[in-house]
Computed example of a mutant assay.
Amino acid sequence: MRALVLDRPGPCDTLRLSDLPVPEPGTGQVRIRVEACGLNPSDYQRAAYGIPEWTWPAVLGLDVVGAVDALGPEVTNVSTGQRVAYHADIRERGGFAEYTLADAQVLAPVPTALEPTDAAALPSAGLTAYQAVVRRLHVTAGDTVLVTGGAGGVGGFAVQLAALAGARVLATASAHNTVHVKGLGAEAVVDHRTEDVPSRVREWTGGRGVDAVVDTVGPDSATANLGLLVHGGRLAAIAGRPDLSVVPPFSMAPSVHEIALGAAYTVGDERSRRQLSTMLTELLGMAADGRLDPMVTRTLPLEDVPAALTELSGRRVRGKLVQVFA
């Protein structure tokens, strides 16, 4: 089978096309004939430093959509020919290949009304946003929510999910992405390059602050945004923990939630992995009925993935990029 492989840790331009044996599913696994695979920052990040458990050459690609091609022993929840989507185990060979293996527990059926390319945009970014907005922050109508990086994958889904919950959403994004982010459901957009975000948030909320923050930028940003929370406010940290020492004990009493999607595999149990399927099934349904925009901005063939990952590493890509097999 054709696959895009990495021979050793390094930049994305070291990825190369190769032929690998078609894998055979083990107990509890299925083989997937890949139709589409979403690109994510974790791909270029993992390429740079590698994973100790990898078998070389490694294959990247966490957001897989395809048809079930073969069943391993003890698999009863899916059937051959069924189109499924899933968030893959970071330690295993991924979806930038014609065939790959998946844990049957994490598979979510793709609705017939949803294109494979749209489904492949959802697992990593969509599940991360869903965990943050729905499962951890419990955003509801009447909340005010700040989302940093609103034009990106996680940020864009977080904006949509918070708006769908009835919240007022303020997002940060570059000026040229303002119209796009407002189209996703943000009531206001702050240009983080030219404007003072805390001042604008205070202005927008009449000095009150926000009920919840989804921070997709990093520890420094998350720490700064703690100061924008109301008493009892909530913050979901996507890209790094905030420093809680900046908040006096027993004062504003924030709750902080670290989102670690892939840890469902590395430290989670069977229930954790099944939740990946449950949450993704919900997201796929929302996309199929038009409530959630998958935000696919470009599709590309396997051979163009290295250049696209390099572009993605510059943090200037709007929405989602998806690799497809013709």
Rank of each mutant, 00 (worst) to 15 (best):
N177M: 12
T178D: 15
H180F: 15
V181S: 14
K182P: 07
K182F: 12
K182R: 15
G183S: 11
G183V: 09
E187K: 11
E187H: 15
E187V: 11
A188H: 15
V190G: 10
E195Q: 15
E195V: 10
D196A: 12
V197G: 09
P198E: 03
V201F: 15
V201E: 10
R202N: 07
W204R: 10
T205K: 05
T205G: 08
G207H: 11
G207M: 10
V210K: 07
D211L: 02
D211P: 00
A212Y: 09
V213Q: 06
V214L: 13
D215N: 12
T216V: 10
V217R: 14
V217H: 12
P219S: 05
S221T: 10
A222Y: 07
T223F: 11
T223Y: 12
A224I: 00
A224G: 07
N225G: 00
L226V: 05
L226S: 03
G227I: 01
L228F: 13
L228T: 06
L229C: 04
V230K: 10
H231C: 02
G232P: 00
G232Q: 08
L235A: 04
A237W: 11
I238M: 09
I238C: 07
I238P: 04
I238K: 02
A239D: 05
A239R: 13
G240V: 04
G240D: 11
P242Y: 11
P242K: 00
D243I: 05
V246G: 05
V247M: 05
V247R: 01
M252C: 03
A253V: 10
P254N: 10
S255W: 08
H257A: 08
H257D: 07
E258D: 15
I259H: 09
I259N: 12
A260E: 03
A260T: 13
A263N: 14
A263P: 00
A263I: 00
A264N: 14
A264I: 01
Y265V: 03
T266H: 13
V267S: 13
E270D: 13
R271D: 10
S272G: 02
L276E: 03
L276N: 07
M279Q: 15
T281P: 10
E282M: 00
E282S: 05
L283C: 03
L283M: 06
A288F: 06
D289T: 02
D289V: 01
D289P: 00
G290H: 03
G290M: 00
G290W: 08
R291P: 00
R291T: 01
L292W: 08
L292S: 04
P294L: 05
V296T: 07
T297E: 08
R298Y: 04
R298M: 09
T299G: 06
L300Y: 09
L302K: 06
E303P: 05
D304L: 11
D304H: 12
P306A: 04
A307T: 11
A307V: 09
A308W: 04
T310S: 14
L312E: 05
L312V: 06
L312R: 04
S313Y: 08
G314D: 12
R315E: 08
R316T: 15
R316E: 08
